[in-house]
Amino acid sequence: MTLLLKNVTYTFPKEKKPIISDLNLKIEKGEFVSLIGKSGTGKSTILKLITGLLKQALGEITINGQPISLGDVGYMPQKDLLLPWRTVMDNIMIGAEIQKDLQLTKEDARNWLKRVGLIDYEQALPNQISGGMRQRVAFLRAMLTGKEVLLLDEPFGALDSITKKEMQAWLLSIWQELDKTIVFITHDLEEASYLSDRIILLKQYSVEEIEVPLHRPRHADMLHSSELVGLRRELEKKI
């Protein structure tokens, strides 16, 4: 599986200058790639192009050579967007209701809820659980769409630092186990360095790719390693 963006250009309606111009990206199966960059450099737009929610004016986006279409990838937007009238379980099952060929049983969902510590909240409404729990439910909903590629748009942006650390460790363990391909947006340079194989730094009209020099598996001690601290400083200068 390869996710390929070739010469992609996108301009918002009613704007003259493209927000993304002539972007080329190649993401291999199982890679964890982070997109960083200042606001307005088109990070979220790239994810929306990959989902098919937006259509690029020029260029092509393919998975294994096939042009992408809606429903091909799992997408988790910035806000958790849990449907407030559905229970935790029903929120997770919505992907299976929409895509009839998706093999997801309530039993599978229950097993996952057990693993992420939410089994007691299966019948809870989104407003009855904490922000961190909501993010986990939103992540499960995206992940259990069963797609190989997961697009995560600043999933931990609104969380406090302790919860954020927990969620990062949790995301890494799931990613390693399931061999998913993740495209991750963050403003947190430490988070990007700690989680990713590769960081893509977006600036207006230029893109820079940076390999992360840390080995796998990652663990929290690495946050203080000289490699990570050095990389973060380098990113701070470049951004």
Partner: peptide, 20 residues
């Protein structure tokens, strides 16, 4: 935002109407 989320899952207009 909710409509986009459901569309990203491949929902039809009718599914968006009934579910959202």
């Amino acid at each position: 935002d909710y409509i986009e989320l459901l569309r990203s899952m491949g929902a039809s207009k009718r599914q968006i109407f009934t579910k959202l």
